[in-house]
Design a protein around this nucleic acid. Structure first.
Lengths: 132, 132
DNA sequence: CTGCGACTTGAAGCGCGGTTCAAGTCAAGT
DNA sequence: ACTTGACTTGAACCGCGCTTCAAGTCGCAG
């Protein structure tokens, strides 16, 4: 056995993902098992890095299918950079939206209306959250 | 017919939600149809406000089920304010996470590595996104 | 009265991101 | 040799947030 290969349990523990999720990711084409120890999948240590990237992209709002296509296509660096720039813009928008939302919530903590759901400021703020 | 009641089509158009979604929301207990025009649901104008609130809460990360429980329970203002404060903290965390993510993406646009996926700065940044 | 078109219903289906299940297999410890 | 416990498989199931479907019903225009 190649000592550098990590057992699925190890990878699950260190990545914070369930083994079932790792198998699911494999079916989706996001990762590959690089060996077996009996029936057990084993992975190259780089897989942990890849999983971090996958998790991050997923958190960014990419679907697993998108990420898989991404990884499979081996897009040129230029294309990749462009897509990431596009994602940066999306993320920026989302941050702005969440910031407006947080400001509305913050106002709720401060305002005097009871019920504050009827507070005109609150209502106005709510409307601005989705339609700035 | 009460002239002030809005036809479902009208509400769908003005709220940006599909009629099927409005019926779905009704099953979920998020809204109520206040009358009928034949078989067609009709709604009080306030429903539009309520839908804005629902949409906003959903965008904030509440599930429809949570929102429904929320509305049904008619929680005290104090409880409501507390939950919103809790949500404010969650939203703040999410904003921070997305900000870290955006910074990673921003770095990708600037850095010299090719493939930049191997850039140590990028890798480090990626790791920090989910585990600050 | 007839047709149109927008609605009605309950039930089924979808895409997502997985988990759970039953039954089986394997490595390692005693 | 036997047990234990973590994995294996494919298939079914889950919650979410809806949409879509087939079949039916209504208001209104001509």
């Amino acid at each position: 056995m190649d000592e550098t290969l990590l057992d699925i349990g190890e990878v699950a523990r260190r990545s914070g993902l369930a083994p079932s999720a790792l198998r699911f990711y494999e079916r989706k084409g996001l990762i590959t098992a690089d060996g077996r120890n009996g029936l057990r999948r084993t992975y190259l240590p780089e897989t942990l890095e890849r999983l971090a990237l996958v998790t991050c992209a997923r958190d960014a709002g990419f679907t697993l299918t998108e990420i898989a296509a991404f990884l499979r296509a081996g897009p040129s660096d230029a294309v990749l950079r462009e897509r990431m720039a596009a994602k940066e813009r999306e993320v920026d928008e989302r941050i702005a939206q969440l910031t407006r939302l947080r400001d509305s919530l913050r106002h709720a903590a401060v305002c005097d209306h009871d019920p504050f759901v009827e507070c005109p400021d609150f209502k106005r703020a709510i409307r601005r959250v989705s339609v700035p």
